[in-house]
Write a protein that binds this DNA or RNA. Sequence first.
DNA 1: CGACTACTTTGATGTTCGTCAAAATAGTTG
DNA 2: CAACTATTTTGACGAACATCAAAGTAGTCG
Lengths: 91, 91
Amino acid sequence: MKEKEATLIAKALGEPSRFSIYSQIAEGDGIYCGEVCNKHALSPGTVSHHLKVLTDLGLITSRKEGLNVYYRSVPEKFSAYLAYLQSLNRK
Amino acid sequence: MKEKEATLIAKALGEPSRFSIYSQIAEGDGIYCGEVCNKHALSPGTVSHHLKVLTDLGLITSRKEGLNVYYRSVPEKFSAYLAYLQSLNRK
DNA sequence: CGACTACTTTGATGTTCGTCAAAATAGTTG
DNA sequence: CAACTATTTTGACGAACATCAAAGTAGTCG
């Protein structure tokens, strides 16, 4: 992973709502968009926006199931980010 | 470390200039403020601002040496942040 | 003390971006 | 097809913030 990508991920997780949403997704085994809206006091449009940012960065993936959209995390991507951060100390 | 603090650190590192400045400090064994200004095309005021943000978060410390101010990283703080991130996956 | 240096603080500016309401889209179901 | 539901997109607005120039501060040195 390059510095630019790491910075974009850090920026994404630096927004409180988005960090919280990512945490919720990462902790479970997948979740529907609506459940995210329920847990956080945010409009559907705002939640959809945050989910798109996380998806574009590869931190989560989505799959349509009927009317709902199912989201789950991509641990490998997150691990790659952690590995990059770890390499910063004592390079 | 709590979620709020982790988010603040992520936000701080999500700003490209600040991420780059932190990297420069973390990679070496300490550095003067002026050297940071030289490496990055930023005004002294801007660099000072970024260094203050990182200092307030406990990611770096400063010590005055004559006319110069010497900065070095606090690896323990950064490690605590990494540990928190690691706990997000598979909690 | 007075000139100089390294850094910090202040004030202003332009941009980014989180948020919502509302319109639009896609898919379901009678 | 028509009504409905879940999500996304659009447009607008306000707040946060990165940046700079310039003024301020602290410490050094003749």
